[in-house]
Nucleic acid binder design. Structure first.
Ligand SMILES: [Zn+2]
Ligand SMILES: [Zn+2]
Length: 735
DNA sequence: AGCACGCCGACT
DNA sequence: GTCGGCGTGCTC
């Protein structure tokens, strides 16, 4: 055992302190300890074990208590990597790896009182006499003969008695009570019938073999499982996981929060039963605590969960699955701003286990890694023969405008189709391809959006100063007073919203029952679920919404999906606009129909030749990838460079702008030819909750070096009071 | 980050 | 006289 432990106190101090290790204390990296600190005692984490200290060794204090090993050694290494790469302090990274209830350790172990017969009691012999005098007590004894031991509530139910006969039996010394620790059960009383592994198709077998072969490699590769909707990715995961378990290892399954439904968890529980634990935001503090402890004690072998489940404290994971790997929600939007998909790959390297990235529409970065040979690739292209796919059609709104004499929001074809749906008592989803806040100036009629020629990115409209700004290069432009394409005078800042579509809809279909879902109407946390539930039960005919209604796409009575303006997504000021639009349309088109009618998808657009739309229409992912590759290579957008976004926040605009440009100056001194430092600009959303926002973008061919520079600035560049500098490496949102 | 020390003003 | 404002400095 080394002489000293380097300890990180659990407060936002982010400095380590060395301590003597008392004789006989078995410390490892990742232990939680109590340390004397100043004149008090506090909690900390052991981050290093050393034989020499920089501090005068005779002044070192000793660790007070070892509270136990919370974080596996390799995860401490992972935590340090995250802190370095995403430019945060180690303490934030360590905290991030522990669920709040575990870190605060305020959760009480749940206990249950179990009733059983007292020792030395011959219960059957008691029954005849009790039956004469106290029939309820006899019922309790008879019930407990079968149960052997039971909590009071269950005993009352089985014996069909009140609490009093049990109390009497306890008093008489016939029953005794034992207090025992139990785990809180997040699964309710759900009965699980264990399912047998399904027979794999040839493609699934190939995928399975590709993954499991990696388990024997010294340096297991990451495998992309590219499988169209309904092609059976999950069965491949399940059998690969079984293989990892058979080698005495554990498995981590990440699923995007919104896909983490009881049905998803059930798929895993019905194969692996009690070996499965879950970690997600729907758990109570106590449940989360218990699930984490089960994993930590090695009592479960599999975890299914959202982003943070990646930090499940398994000591020897044998496989890590990231389902729907393209989902932007894998990126955390607070410090440390890690992407769980990328960190999964990193954990796979550290734990020497294969990582499986599954998706029907892999992200461009992942495809690129696969095509460059960094990742291996397995494809699932077949659906069961019983599956039906919807018919997809692009509706050219330019010819629609020519035919009707003016620009329209709804094409005649869409209107007729909806009317038919209403007549047939079938349901319709009207989809607005928008993500978050609209920040560009768009022609309401023809969807024209001004773009920066240098950066092929939409200009951002800033209402206060009435200018268009390119948020990458800072190019400033006067907004046009009328649409350069169609001459329309209303160029709208907010873009077409769901509200307006609802209004129009009520006008065109006055008798239809219409529901609208967006982040404005969905204030309560579960109102989203409620409305989807109501829609599924047929309480509405038409559902209007953005991304968040994606789940409804799979409801069987939804046989028409109208994408109102596919262009809205393409015009977002984000180099991933085309990719996101393609993924969304592919998802809409891939809706798995059951029964005989998968229905129709109508995609309205002013830009029908756009590759993202054409390729989605034809389901041609490879063609889309090739086209997108050209665009990104020319611009050197990620993954052909790395991107860092730096946010500046503060209460006054002038000082904030100065801060941003001053920081930029300091940064530019440390930049090399490998870095492209863009000017500081006001953020697309200039002000949020009284805080002004500026941002600056850096592209780099040497991210490790850039990150070292940024870490140095983070520690040494002091922003004025009330002003914040936030570093976001590999951003998913450019706002 | 906490927490103490410390050095000034305003209230009993 | 003492209560309390938060500036400065330290924690192995
Ligand atoms: Zn530009
Ligand atoms: Zn126009």
């Amino acid at each position: 055992m080394p002489k000293f432990a380097r300890v990180l106190p659990d407060m936002s101090l982010d400095k380590t302190f060395d301590y003597k290790i008392p004789a006989g204390m078995d410390l490892r990296l990742g232990c939680r300890v109590r340390i004397p600190f100043g004149r008090t005692e506090r909690t900390g984490y052991v981050v290093d074990l050393v034989d020499k200290s920089d501090f005068p060794e005779n002044r070192l204090k000793a660790i007070a208590v070892n509270e136990g090993h919370l974080i596996p050694e390799k995860m401490m290494q992972l935590g340090q990597w995250i802190a370095d790469y995403y430019c945060t302090g180690m303490i934030q990274s360590v905290r991030n790896m522990l669920p709040a209830p575990v870190r605060k350790d305020k959760v009480k172990e749940k206990t249950q009182k179990l009733l059983s017969f007292a020792e030395g009691i011959q219960p059957p012999s008691l029954v005849p006499e009790l039956e004469k005098k106290y029939p309820p007590r006899a019922a309790v004894v008879k019930a407990l003969l079968g149960l052997k031991e039971a909590p009071q509530a269950l005993l009352m139910k089985v014996a069909n008695v009140s609490a009093s006969p049990i109390k009497s039996l306890l008093k008489a010394g016939i029953l005794e009570e034992e207090v025992r620790h139990v785990e809180r059960d997040p699964f309710g009383d759900e009965e699980v019938i264990i399912s047998k592994p399904l027979e794999l198709t040839d493609e699934q077998t190939d995928a399975f073999k590709l993954i499991t072969n990696e388990m024997d490699e010294e340096k297991p590769a990451t495998v992309v499982l590219y499988g169209i909707t309904g092609s059976g990715k999950t069965e491949v995961y399940l059998q690969a996981i079984a293989e990892a378990l058979s080698r005495g290892k554990q498995a981590i399954v990440l699923v995007p929060e919104i896909s983490l439904t009881p049905q998803t968890v059930h798929r895993f529980r019905s194969r692996f039963g009690k070996q499965v634990s879950v970690l997600h935001s729907g758990l109570s503090e106590g449940e989360r605590y218990d699930q984490w402890k089960l994993i930590s004690r090695g009592e479960t072998q599999i975890v299914v969960g959202a982003r943070s489940a990646l930090f499940a404290p398994f000591h020897n994971p044998g496989i890590i699955v990231v389902d729907e790997e393209h989902e932007p929600s894998y990126k955390q939007d607070s410090h440390p701003r890690y992407n769980a998909r990328d960190i999964a790959v990193m954990r796979g390297i550290m734990d020497k286990c294969p990582v499986v990235l599954g998706s029907a529409t892999p992200s461009f970065e992942t495809m690129n890694n696969a095509n460059q040979g960094k990742y291996k690739m397995a494809k699932l292209t077949q659906r069961p023969s019983t599956a039906v796919v919807p018919s997809i059609k692009l509706v050219d709104m330019r010819t629609e405008a020519a035919a009707t004499g003016s620009n329209q929001i709804f094409s005649r074809e869409l209107i007729e189709s909806v009317k038919q749906q209403l007549h047939d008592r079938m349901q319709t989803i009207l989809f607005l391809n928008r993500r978050g806040y609209s920040t560009h100036l768009t022609c309401e009629k023809c969807q024209y959006t001004s773009k920066c020629g240098d950066c092929s990115t939409s200009h951002t409209y800033h209402r206060k100063s009435n200018v268009l700004i390119c948020h990458l290069c800072g190019d400033i432009k006067e907004p046009p007073t009328k649409c350069p394409d169609c001459g329309h005078k209303d160029l709208s800042f907010s873009g077409l919203g769901t509200e307006k579509i609802e209004r129009l809809c009520r006008g065109v279909f006055p008798n239809a029952r219409i529901a609208r879902m967006d982040s404005d109407t969905m204030t309560r946390k579960d109102s989203h679920k409620t409305m989807l539930g109501d829609f599924q039960q047929g309480k509405y005919d038409i559902l209007i919404g953005t991304q968040m209604i994606a789940k409804g796409l799979h409801f069987p009575r939804v046989t028409l999906v109208g994408v109102v303006f596919a262009d809205a997504g393409l015009n977002m000021a984000d180099f991933r606009a085309a990719e996101r639009t393609f993924q969304l349309l592919a998802q809409v088109s891939g809706r798995s129909g059951r029964g005989d009618d998968a229905g129709r998808v109508l995609i309205q657009t002013y830009n029908p030749t756009h590759p993202a739309l054409q390729c989605a229409l034809e389901g041609d992912f490879d063609a889309f990838y090739e086209d997108e590759k050209m665009g990104r290579e020319v611009m050197k957008f990620p993954p052909f460079s790395k991107m860092v976004l730096i946010h500046f926040r503060g209460p006054e605009e002038g000082p904030l702008a100065s801060l941003a440009s001053d920081f930029s100056q300091h940064l530019s001194k440390a930049c090399t030819k490998d870095d492209r430092l863009m000017p500081a600009v006001p953020s697309p959303i200039e002000k949020v909750r009284g805080q002004y926002r500026y941002q600056l973008t850096i592209f780099s061919d040497n991210i490790r070096r850039l990150v070292r520079v940024l870490n140095w600035l983070r520690l040494n560049y002091k922003a004025p009071k009330e002003y914040k500098i936030i570093i976001d490496v590999d951003p998913q949102s450019l706002m």
